[in-house]
C-alpha cells in the first residue's frame, strides 16, 4: 500500500500557470500548494508562508484578480489561471502607489506581512478606488500584522487611494 502511494507521489501533473503575465509550463506533484510552487519552482520569494492554513494572509496573491491565500490552493488546480504576486505589481520598475504609501507612511516594520497587505490593498483599490477607513480595515482583516497595530497601514492605503 505504501509503495503504491509513493509511486503515486511521483506522478506529476502538467499545468500552465500565468504568473505576473508570464506563462510557465510545469509538471508538478499534485500535493504542492500554489504558495510552494511560487516560492520553490518559480523563485518568487515575496509571497510568504505565515501559517499554512489561511488564517494570516501573508501568502495572499491575486488569483484571477481576487486576493486569495496561496497556501490553500493546489497548484495543480490553478491550470490556466492568472496569478499576480507582490513582485508583479511593479510597473516598469515603479512600485505601485500602495507600496509607495506603505514605505512613506511607516506602514512597514518587520515587513513579513507586507506583501500580503499590498496585494489585498491593491485588490481593494481596483474594486473600490475611494474606500473609507472601515472598508480598508475590512479589506485587510484577513492579513494579520503583529508590528504596526494596523494604524499606519490603514493610513497608507487611504493615502494611496488619493
Amino acid at each position: 500500500m505504501r509503495d503504491n502511494l509513493l509511486r503515486m507521489a511521483k506522478m506529476r501533473f502538467p499545468i500552465l500557470l500565468v504568473v505576473n503575465g508570464e506563462e510557465h509550463e510545469l509538471e508538478i506533484d499534485p500535493r504542492r500548494t500554489l504558495l510552494q510552487t511560487l516560492r520553490e519552482e518559480l523563485e518568487l520569494g515575496g509571497t510568504h508562508l505565515g501559517c499554512d492554513s489561511g488564517d494570516c494572509g501573508a501568502c495572499t496573491v491575486l488569483l484571477d484578480g481576487e486576493p486569495a491565500p496561496s497556501c490553500l490552493v493546489l497548484a495543480a488546480d490553478c491550470d490556466g489561471r492568472a496569478i499576480v504576486t507582490v513582485e508583479g505589481l511593479l510597473q516598469n520598475g515603479e512600485p505601485h502607489a500602495v507600496q509607495k504609501a506603505l514605505v512613506a507612511q511607516g506602514g512597514i516594520q518587520c515587513g513579513y506581512c507586507t506583501p500580503g497587505i499590498v496585494v489585498s490593498s491593491v485588490a481593494l483599490l481596483r474594486a473600490n478606488p475611494n474606500p473609507n477607513e472601515a472598508e480598508v480595515r475590512e479589506a485587510i482583516a484577513g492579513n494579520l500584522c503583529r508590528c504596526t497595530g494596523y494604524q499606519k497601514i490603514v493610513e497608507a492605503v487611504l493615502a494611496a487611494a488619493k
Binding site: 518568487l44 520569494g45 515575496g46 504576486t85 513582485e87 507600496q99 506603505l102 515587513g111 506583501p115
Partner: peptide, 21 residues
C-alpha cells in the same frame, strides 16, 4: 524626521530576504 525605514522598499516589493528564503 519621519524618514522611511532603510529596507522599507525591499519589504514592500517582496525583495527582502528572510530566513525562510
Amino acid at each position: 524626521k519621519r524618514v522611511p525605514k532603510l529596507d522599507a522598499l525591499d519589504k514592500a516589493t517582496g525583495r527582502a530576504q528572510y530566513g525562510h528564503d
